[in-house]
């Protein structure tokens, strides 16, 4: 009699099974310090996108509205021109389009897939809403985002010095 009651209570208070995507997000830099329960709260905001090889995720100068995390495959961040310049390559776990979460300025470069690619997308509007509905989660996300952007800036500075 006690055992079923206990297992029922455990079900109510435990965060539940971990899906592939949640396990993947727990390992990413953007979700450092964010618990599984918190990830489950924001999982309804996740959009899954699948891209063919050489497909554009976004174009330079387009308004930015989403942040992406590479789940599978790889991408090139390209400055279009003649010839186009590859700025960097991104692999699973990397994020792209992070600046769109902070402001509404146009994209600074284009993102093109190298092969079949799966991305996890978060819409800027939903992240903005998190500030009101779940301020603690939003604060952790913005802190991680600041760290990622800071690291990228350091890397760019280091590249410039060399």
């Amino acid at each position: 009699m006690i055992a079923p009651l206990w297992s029922g209570l455990k079900k109510v208070f435990s965060p539940g099974d971990v899906t592939d995507v949640e396990a993947f997000l727990l390992r990413t830099q953007l979700f450092q310090g964010i618990s599984l329960r918190e990830i489950k709260r924001i999982s309804p905001l996740i959009h899954y996108r699948t891209y063919d090889p050489d497909e554009e995720v976004f174009k330079k100068e387009q308004p930015g509205a989403a942040l992406y995390i590479v789940k599978e495959g790889a991408l090139r961040i390209v400055n279009p021109g003649d010839p186009p310049v590859v700025i960097t390559e991104l692999n699973p776990g990397d994020i792209l389009g992070e600046l769109s979460i902070l402001d509404e300025k146009p994209r600074s470069a284009s993102a093109i897939t190298k092969g079949p690619t799966q991305l996890i997308a978060f819409f800027k509007g939903n992240i903005d809403d998190l500030i009101d509905s779940d301020p603690q989660i939003a604060a952790k996300l913005y802190r991680n985002l600041s760290i990622i952007i800071g690291n990228r800036l350091k890397m760019s500075n280091a590249k410039l010095k060399h």
Partner: peptide, 25 residues
């Protein structure tokens, strides 16, 4: 509401993805 919007967005081709999200917003 959220589920309906998500299903709608999931059916949208990649080229219209961000545009759909901002328009809906």
């Amino acid at each position: 509401r959220g589920a309906l919007v998500k299903q709608l967005v999931a059916a949208v081709p990649n080229i219209y993805f961000e545009m759909t999200l901002t328009s809906l917003r």
